[in-house]
């Protein structure tokens, strides 16, 4: 298997169509949260299209947002509507779809704009050289920022307590029960709180990644700081 046959799918809710970043409202207004989610999405899509020899996919919801997202997404990104109820079903369908055409696939969230793309490449390599059946990128909050598979495995997505701190451990238990070899990528953080936003600002200043988020964030943090000072 070669990398040319792999896909990386960004899982995203279309900003403006579904609620996004609700845990950040407040301090952010609904408009600001939507703008931030859009910046996160676009920075992530740029990151994925910068990977060489990988099919970039935007797995989006709701289906009605396709036209709007088509206008937003960089060229070369394939749009694929998410199907099913709940994240587990959606991931199951996504991997079913991708793995009929690709020998390996990796689904990524959009919650961590400065995520090092080199780690995504490490994950793809582990799938490509057959050193792992499942690749997981753990999040500090107990979830995961990426999951990659070589073959569909619906069991990984069944009865997972999504949006809790037990997502990763549950998934690891399912993988063990299926006798799958797991490769864990480095742990990274999601942006869910105001403190996370500050950390993100730090990280952007240093890594010079995520240009859209960077531009927006400096305005947002200035406003939040002014508010705190008042």
């Amino acid at each position: 298997m070669t990398r040319s046959t792999q896909a990386v799918a960004v899982m995203a809710k279309a900003p403006g169509w579904l609620p996004v970043k609700s845990r950040l409202q407040p301090p952010l207004s609904a408009d600001e949260a939507r703008a931030l989610a859009t910046a996160f999405l676009l920075d992530r899509l740029d990151g994925v299209t910068s990977l060489s020899a990988v099919a970039a996919v935007l797995a989006f919801a709701p289906a009605e947002a396709e036209r709007a997202l088509r206008a937003l997404a960089p060229p070369g990104v394939r749009l694929l509507a998410q199907r099913g109820e709940g994240l587990g079903e959606r991931l199951t369908h996504l991997f079913d779809d991708l793995l009929t055409e690709h020998a390996g696939a990796l689904a990524l969230d959009t919650d961590s704009p400065t995520l090092p793309m080199a780690w995504v490449e490490d994950g793809l390599d582990a799938l490509a050289d057959d050193s792992a059946d499942v690749v997981l990128g753990p999040s500090e909050d107990g979830g995961y920022w990426a999951i990659g598979l070589r073959a569909p495995c619906p069991a990984l997505f069944v009865a997972v307590p999504w949006s809790t701190d037990r997502v990763l451990e549950t998934t690891l238990a399912r993988a063990a029960a299926e006798n799958l070899r797991v490769r864990l990528l480095p742990r990274w953080f999601d942006i869910d709180t105001e403190a996370d936003l500050r950390r993100l600002g730090d990280d952007i200043a240093v890594s010079r990644r995520a240009p859209r988020t960077a531009a927006l964030l400096s305005a947002l943090t200035a406003r939040l700081a002014a508010e705190t000072a008042r």
């Binding site: 090092p116 080199a118 780690w119 480095p186 240093v206 890594s207 010079r208």
Partner: peptide, 9 residues
Amino acid sequence: GALDLDSLD
């Protein structure tokens, strides 16, 4: 002179 975090990995 920029910090190279990928090299840190």
